[in-house]
C-alpha cells in the first residue's frame, strides 16, 4: 500500500464524514462536520505540493525540499479556520440561547407570512 493511497483515502473519508455531518439537523454536529471538512481541505491543499518524506523546506545542504508554497498557504488557512469555527460556534450559541433551540433549519412556514409579520 502506498502513501499516496493512504493520504488520498484519508482526504476522501474526512470529506465524506464532514459532508454527512454538515447535513445533520442540529448545530453541534454541523460544526463538527465543518471542522472535518476543514481538515480535508487543508490536507488536500497540502497534498497539492505532492508528498515528500524527510525533506522539510528548511534550507540546508540538501538538494530536494518539500514544496513550501502549499505549506505556507495551509498554515494561514489553519489559523483562519480557527477564526471561522469560532464565529460559527458563536452564531450557533447565540441562536440557541436566543431561541432555546439548536436546530439549523428554520421552522417550515410560508415565507410570505414571515415577511408580512416583519413589516
Amino acid at each position: 500500500m502506498g502513501l499516496e493511497l493512504l493520504v488520498a483515502s484519508a482526504i476522501g473519508i474526512l470529506t465524506a464524514a464532514g459532508m454527512y455531518l454538515v447535513l445533520r439537523l442540529r448545530t453541534f454536529p454541523v460544526i463538527m462536520g465543518i471542522s472535518l471538512l476543514t481538515y480535508a481541505v487543508n490536507v488536500f491543499l497540502f497534498a497539492s505540493g505532492r508528498l515528500t518524506v524527510s525533506a522539510p523546506p528548511i534550507l540546508t545542504d540538501a538538494t530536494t525540499y518539500a514544496d513550501p508554497l502549499p505549506q505556507a498557504l495551509v498554515l494561514t488557512a489553519i489559523v483562519i479556520s480557527f477564526g471561522m469555527t469560532a464565529v460559527v460556534v458563536m452564531i450557533a450559541l447565540g441562536a440557541y440561547l436566543g431561541a432555546n433551540d439548536d436546530e439549523v433549519n428554520d421552522p417550515v412556514t410560508d415565507p410570505d407570512d414571515a415577511v408580512e409579520k416583519a413589516t
Partner: peptide, 29 residues
C-alpha cells in the same frame, strides 16, 4: 445524506489520488 457524503468523499479521493501520482504540468513557482 449518506449517498451525497459518499459521492463527495469518492470524488475528493479520486481527484487527490490522481494528482498525487502525477507531477505538476508546469514547474511550480
Amino acid at each position: 445524506d449518506g449517498a451525497i457524503a459518499l459521492a463527495a468523499g469518492g470524488a475528493t479521493f479520486a481527484l487527490s489520488y490522481h494528482f498525487l501520482l502525477r507531477d505538476a504540468i508546469s514547474t511550480p513557482i
